[in-house]
């Protein structure tokens, strides 16, 4: 996403729904109403609206695990969380250690940044 200096266009979003990579321009009128231009499909428009109003990402990382065959367990968020909250979430996870065994899908951290998003295990991991 890039900020644009051109008046009227307040943001340009590169669409990643398909490899075509349409450039979608977001404009704002005097009343603060936003319009989207440059998309070539409905999914593209939806993507651009989400990206503009409330960008969210699935987060994938690892968490420290005790007594397992590896020192780290891969984890993910069960749904996308606000992009601006990502770093906070990474820090919370960095400061947490769990215990083996776990099963894929086990909830490890509930409601991590108060957005109703949980951190879940990405795989099974046995005890050592």
């Amino acid at each position: 996403m890039k900020e644009c200096e051109d008046t009227g266009i307040i943001k340009t979003i590169r669409c990643i729904v398909c490899p075509t990579g349409c450039l979608i321009e977001v404009r704002e009128d005097i009343e603060g109403k936003n319009t989207f231009q440059g998309y070539t499909c409905k999914r593209g428009l939806e993507y651009a609206q989400q990206e503009f109003f409330e960008p969210k990402r699935i987060m994938t990382t690892t968490i420290k695990i005790d007594n397992a065959i590896h020192p780290l367990l891969p984890v993910r968020s069960n749904k996308p969380l606000l992009k601006e909250k990502l770093n906070e979430a990474f820090q919370i996870i960095a400061n947490t250690t769990i215990k083996a065994p776990v099963k894929m899908g086990d909830i490890l951290i509930k409601n991590i940044t108060n957005e109703d998003v949980n951190i879940i295990a990405s795989r099974d991991m046995e005890k050592k």
């Binding site: 699935i58 994938t60 990382t61 690892t62 891969p74 993910r76 894929m104 990405s122 795989r123």
Partner: peptide, 17 residues
């Protein structure tokens, strides 16, 4: 450990593990 696997096979975005 990133996601993006399985869109064709499972119609889901999964992580590698």
């Amino acid at each position: 450990i990133h996601n993006g696997f399985g869109i064709k096979e499972f119609d889901k975005e999964l992580t590698g593990p």
